[in-house]
């Protein structure tokens, strides 16, 4: 008897195993594939960049070659410009973000815990949060002058109104039954807030910190748009005036890299601090 084609296929198959496919909904893939895909894409973009500029397909004024950017990097390092810019920008971002966080944290906690505070603050926060931070630049200069505090204010406006709502949500996400259980164990409402709601919400709040700090990096150029003489954002704005494209690209890369580093630091700290967090499998 001749075997049909399907018969053969079934016999040759390993028992109980179907060859894994690359694309399956929510299915885990090997870490090698996972990481090489991500790194591969970055490599591809770099190669594309080298090819485009190397073949002279694009004028250097639109897209400078990687080596031109590298030269610019070395120049800024040796002249101490890069370090001074990074220090100034890091300081502004930290100060602006801290300012936002120090105010958003208590208000967000109150909004997430008490309907009264939610009703009190949410309409105003909602109104302001869609206003573009960049539009506040002229006003901020009028109000605060051209010093660092004006930069803090721009970073604050860009961050605070989102951050406070995110912290509110982090607090609201604490299961109601945890709160009720705490009451039946004899705790008063402020004790429940301090000893149960806050520790439960903390991993989420920490994640909000990480995300909002990332936004601060994206607002840097806006903050250093005018009236600055040092800073990564200022360097980009200055390079625009002289059409120093390689300096612009260098600045963008440095900001992206520093943002990525702070993000990774926050993630690593979370993994150490919140070992108890239940992750969905």
């Amino acid at each position: 008897m001749r075997k049909s084609k399907t018969h053969v296929a079934i016999e040759n198959r390993q028992p109980g195993r179907r060859p894994p496919r690359l694309l399956e909904l929510h299915r885990d893939i090997s870490p090698v594939v996972y990481w090489s895909a991500g790194i591969g894409l970055i490599a591809l973009v770099l190669v594309g960049w080298v090819v485009l500029s190397g073949l002279g397909l694009v004028k250097p004024i639109f897209l400078p070659s990687p080596s031109a950017v590298w030269t610019e990097f070395n120049r800024q390092v040796s002249e101490g410009i890069l370090l001074a810019d990074m220090t100034a920008s890091l300081y502004r971002i930290m100060a602006g973000w801290m300012l936002s966080t120090l105010i958003a944290l208590p208000i967000g906690i109150l909004m997430g815990s008490f309907r009264f505070f939610e009703g009190l603050f949410e309409p105003s926060v909602d109104l302001v949060r869609y206003m573009p931070a960049v539009a506040f630049v002229p006003l901020s200069i009028l109000w605060l002058g051209v010093g660092d505090s004006q930069k803090f204010l721009i970073l604050f406006i860009g961050t605070f109104f989102q951050e406070v709502l995110m912290i509110m949500d982090n607090v609201k996400n604490v299961p109601k039954e945890l709160v009720q259980t705490s009451y039946t164990l004899g705790l008063g409402k402020w004790e429940v807030l301090r000893d149960v709601v806050l520790p439960t919400a903390l991993p989420g709040i920490w994640d909000t910190f990480r995300i909002t700090l990332g936004w601060c990096w994206t607002y840097l150029v806006v903050a250093e748009l005018v009236a600055a003489n040092v800073g990564l954002g200022y360097r980009i704005m200055r390079a625009q005036r002289f059409l120093q494209t390689e300096s612009i690209i260098l600045g963008i890369l440095i900001i992206g890299l520093l943002g990525l580093i702070t993000d990774l630091l926050f993630k690593a700290a979370a993994r150490r601090m919140f070992t108890w967090v239940e992750r969905q499998a």
Binding site: P175, Q180, T184, L185, P199
Partner: peptide
């Protein structure tokens, strides 16, 4: 509400950041 009326819920209500031991100790706060 008060500690004289303890409650066990259907959903899981252990405090996730406390060990089992510390959860039970929480009842003695």
């Amino acid at each position: 509400p008060g500690a004289d009326r303890g409650m066990v819920f259907q959903g899981y209500t252990l405090f996730p950041w406390l060990t089992v031991e510390d959860n039970v100790r929480f009842g003695l706060k």
